[in-house]
Amino acid sequence: MSQPQTLIRIAHVSKRYQEGDRERVVLADVEAAFGAGEHIAIVGRSGSGKSTLLNLLAGLDLPSAGEIWIGGDCISRFSDRARTLFRRDHIGFIFQFFNLISTLTVRENVVLTAELSGWKPPAARAQTDRLLDAVGLLDRAQTFPDKLSGGEQQRVAIARALCADPPLILADEPTGNLDADTGAQVMGLLTALARERGKTLIVVTHSSEVSALADRIFRLDHGRLLEVAHRHPA
């Protein structure tokens, strides 16, 4: 079995925050590489810097030192606008609190990312409906988010993350706000869809059930990222 081609390279990344007159180091010289199509779980205690790392990977924030490469692009050197445009085409994001736009219908929430990526409306609409069908919510396409349960909202968020067909999906505690059964269902769906479409999936989680679905598990501890488990493909 050949190694997957590297999609993400984290090179000597550090992140420090100034807190009053003290400096707090959240990430210290983090080094990692994730392959295309790989499923990665990042675990760690609360406040260990998991979400910070995810924000850096998404280009929502910049490292204090080091570089982040996605594909052939060093996104940490990009301007804010270039990172936004890069994110639009290359990254799908799933949040713990779903973060659907309350004023848009389910279909509009999903189509948003495709439209932003410049998809033609008919193609965007077809893609949206395919994904809504895949997450089992096509019949709720015209519903507003506040009428959906937590699990349903997260399924819409999964469809939204996949809609523009980005190679990388980042999920920040995607089951953190759901009960165990619903969480397992949502995670199963996310993993299946990501694998089916060959997406790289990086999940930040506390849950051992969620991390168990990943190919590799990393632990963030005192600012260091350590690989703690590697599941060989069957």
Binding site: R81, T84, L100, I101
Partner: peptide, 16 residues
């Protein structure tokens, strides 16, 4: 603010 953050995360530029 949060909603605008989501839009930004989804790729909406500041101009948009």
């Amino acid at each position: 603010t949060r909603e605008l953050g989501v839009l930004s995360a989804a790729g909406m530029t500041l101009a948009q």
